[in-house]
Amino acid sequence: MGGTLGIGAVGSIALLVGTPLLIAPLGSTCMMIFGAPHAPFAHPRNVLGGHTICTVVGLLGVRVLGNAPWTIAAAVGLAMALMGLTRSFHPPAGGDTVLVMLAQPGWLFLFVPVLLGCVILLGIAMAFHNAHSAGSYPVSSVPTRREVIAAEE
């Protein structure tokens, strides 16, 4: 139900404002924040940080290195390293790097659809999860490095 509401809201807002907001990585983010909201990768910090890092790396990468398969691979690796260093790892965001390097959008892409889509999904997730008596999203703590490694295993 939450995933339907989340993607439905993003799609509806996109129609209202006349701007495409639905991108594949947001579908994966939706799966994570509604299907496993207490997982470290589903924390809002990780969602926003991961999508920001991966999109910026893609935008810089395509402008500096082009979009050959090896440059896309290098950019994804760099984005993963930066998410790890900043403790903002969010696996669905890796798709942003690939998408950006293939489509070569402008810098506005970071804000619309990426960050706007994330904010909409996170707002719906907070309302949805907290509407349940036992629900609580986001969880109160930022994941430790140990939690991130454990979630990866």
Rank of each mutant, 00 (worst) to 15 (best):
G6D: 11
G8C: 09
A9S: 15
S12A: 15
I13V: 15
A14L: 05
A14W: 04
L15V: 12
L16Y: 09
P20S: 15
I23K: 09
I23L: 10
I23E: 07
A24G: 11
G27T: 08
G27W: 07
G27A: 14
T29N: 04
T29H: 08
C30G: 12
M31G: 15
I33A: 13
I33D: 13
F34W: 05
F34N: 07
P37E: 07
H38K: 14
H38I: 09
H38Q: 15
A39I: 08
A39H: 15
A39D: 10
A39R: 14
P40I: 09
F41Q: 14
A42M: 11
A42Q: 07
H43N: 14
P44W: 08
R45M: 12
R45S: 15
V47K: 11
L48W: 13
L48T: 10
G49Y: 02
G49F: 08
G50K: 05
H51Q: 09
H51I: 10
T52V: 14
T52N: 10
T55E: 06
V56N: 12
V57S: 06
V57D: 07
L59P: 04
L59V: 12
L59Q: 10
G61E: 03
V62L: 06
R63W: 05
V64C: 10
V64M: 12
G66Q: 11
A68E: 01
A68I: 00
A68L: 04
W70V: 11
I72S: 12
I72W: 06
A74F: 03
G77F: 00
G77S: 09
G77W: 00
M80N: 12
M80R: 03
A81V: 06
A81E: 00
M83L: 01
M83E: 04
G84K: 07
G84R: 07
G84C: 07
L85S: 13
S88M: 02
F89R: 02
P91V: 05
P92A: 11
P92S: 10
A93I: 00
G94S: 01
G95C: 01
G95I: 00
D96C: 08
D96Q: 05
V98I: 06
V98P: 00
L99P: 00
V100L: 02
V100Q: 01
V100S: 02
M101F: 02
P105F: 05
P105A: 04
W107G: 09
F109G: 00
L110P: 03
F111N: 03
V112L: 09
P113Q: 02
V114W: 00
V114P: 01
V114E: 01
L116V: 08
L116A: 10
G117W: 00
G117E: 00
C118E: 01
C118F: 00
V119W: 10
I120Q: 08
L121K: 11
L122H: 12
L122Q: 06
G123M: 05
G123A: 12
A125V: 05
M126L: 10
A127H: 06
F128R: 05
F128S: 05
F128P: 02
H129Y: 09
H129P: 09
N130M: 03
N130L: 02
H132P: 06
S133R: 15
G135H: 01
S136N: 14
V139D: 06
S141F: 04
P143R: 04
T144P: 08
T144C: 02
R146S: 14
E147Q: 15
E147A: 14
E147W: 14
V148N: 06
V148L: 13
I149E: 13
I149V: 13
